[in-house]
Every structure is written in structure tokens, then in C-alpha cells.
Design a protein around this nucleic acid. Structure first.
Lengths: 139, 139
DNA sequence: CTAGACCTTCTACCCGACTTCAAGGTCAAG
DNA sequence: CTTGACCTTGAAGTCGGGTAGAAGGTCTAG
């Protein structure tokens, strides 16, 4: 199987597959006489695993750490479990931040409905966004 | 007021202030005889405005568009109102994505508790993350 | 025999909001 | 008169996950 076929099978670009190889998520494949990379079903499964793990929000570095364990013969489940817990905590933290930001934006929108643009002075720049007590920037 | 004093007054770095100048959020300031930038209270307010707007999740490009209106003598309130609405929609969209991701992670965690690592085969890489029906990657 | 659809490598670019580095000039205190 | 805390400029690096382009080799159908 050539790189384009692998890519099509999983639904990624050929450049992405080469990128995974450069980043050592994929092993250096065997080459045909013409220098073309040759892949098999295991490689399809591996790229599929990478994409599934990405869809759970794991980074390529984290995914590589899973693959490295497996390649060294270690069952990676406990590690995967930890990564999932970490990611879940991050997602929840982020959701809380976004909820706070949403509240702030709702307040700003309310303000914009209450205030009259005619009252907006030069020095304020815009009185909707006037220096309020200022939440941290967390983006 | 020199750049360091301005920066301290608002709580940003001097590099950030120069960056805002390069990106045309801040006007080119007058210079002292030594070439040092000289700022006044209006500049403090302007950097403060930038930070407040950033804390509402507006990008520097969006903030510049607000400042540009004000500098051309146009009251920017209507535009600000639109930007706030846009941002609010984005934040809510992102929250929905994260809620979906959270559900997926919770399911993966449940799976990891149900499955026995001893049953995890080489071909799966890790059976917790086995190619499930795959949600799109939206990060 | 040639078009064009593959493949190869390498390098550079993208997003945003800075930070860091390098190499120098200026100024007040002790 | 020196130390060190400020200031100046410009270029380059950071993060992640790729994409884009150039310049070339290979293979297959018509």
C-alpha cells in the first residue's frame, strides 16, 4: 500500500502521514525499489488510532508516549487512563473559564443595550468596554 | 511617562507596549531628546482598554478596528456591540464542542474502568481508544 | 511517447500574541 | 567613574499540527 492509499483509507493527507513519521508517531516504513513508502493494514490501524486519540483531544506528544509504550512491549492502558483523566480535567477547567467569559460577554451586551452611544466620550474609547474590574486573560 | 512606567501602570510588559505600537493599536508616541518614548494618561487608558477588550476575548485585530473608528471620530459602540455578539456566539459554540468532548472523555474513562489491561492486544495499541465511530476533530 | 497522477526531499509558512536575544545608547546614584 | 537599571532597534523564536511550494523521480494508460 502506498502513502496515498493509506492516507485515503484513514482520511488524512499524505503530508500528515509524513509529518507523523517525522514526529516519530509512525515508524520509518519499508521502501519499494522505487523509494516509495510501503504500508500495511497495521499502519492503517496505527494512523486510525492517532486520529481517534486526537479526537479525544490528546496532543501528538501524548499520543506518541502511548505508542512508545506499546512499541516497547508495555501495555499502555494505565498511561492512557491517566492521560484521559488529565484531559478531562483540562476540558472541565476550560469549560469553567468559558462559562465565566460568557457571563462577562452577556453583561457587556446588556450594558450595550442600556447605554446610549451618544454618551460615549472620546476618552473612554467605548463606554461599553470601560475599564471594569478586570478578569484575567486566560486564552 | 516612560514606557516602563506605562507598562507597570497597566500591568503589561514593555515589549507588549512596543508590540501594540507595531501593530498600530497604539499611536507612535512623542519622543524625548534621548529618543525615549513619552506617554501620558490617555495612553494608560488606551492600553487599559486594550487589555479589558482582550479579557472579553476580542483579538487585537478586532480591538484595532474599534480604536481605528474612535481615532477617525466615529463612535464605535455599534461596532463593539456587534463584536461582542460575535464573540458570544463563538464562546457558546466552543462550549458546546467542549461539552461533547467531555462526554466522549467520560465514556473513554468508563471504558478504561470496565476493560482489563490484560485483554489489550498489540494490534489495538490500546483497546480503550479503539477505533470507535469517530467524532470530528474540532480543536 | 507523452500526459498526468503518483511519489520523493527539503524548506518555508500559517495562526496569535507575544517573548527572547543581541548589541547597543542613556541616565541617576553612590 | 562605574554600576546597573532603564531605554533603543531589529530579528528570531515560541506553541501545535499541520499545509504549501519547489524541484525532481516514477509509473501507467492511451
Amino acid at each position: 500500500m502506498r502513502i496515498g492509499e493509506l492516507a485515503d483509507a484513514v482520511g488524512v493527507s499524505t503530508q500528515a502521514v509524513r509529518y507523523y513519521e517525522r514526529e516519530q508517531l509512525m515508524p520509518a516504513p519499508t521502501r519499494g525499489g522505487n523509494g516509495y513508502r510501503a504500508y500495511d493494514d497495521q499502519d492503517v490501524a496505527r494512523v486510525g488510532f492517532i486520529r481517534t486519540a486526537q479526537s479525544a483531544g490528546l496532543t501528538l506528544v501524548q499520543i506518541r508516549s502511548i505508542l512508545d509504550l506499546r512499541d516497547r512491549g508495555v501495555i499502555p492502558c494505565d498511561h492512557v487512563s491517566d492521560l484521559i483523566d488529565d484531559r478531562l480535567a483540562e476540558v472541565r477547567h476550560r469549560m469553567a473559564e468559558l462559562a465565566a467569559l460568557e457571563q462577562e460577554l452577556v453583561q457587556l451586551r446588556d450594558r450595550s443595550e442600556r447605554l446610549n452611544p451618544a454618551d460615549c466620550s472620546d476618552g473612554d474609547i467605548c463606554h461599553i468596554i470601560a475599564s471594569q474590574p478586570q478578569p484575567a486573560i486566560s486564552e
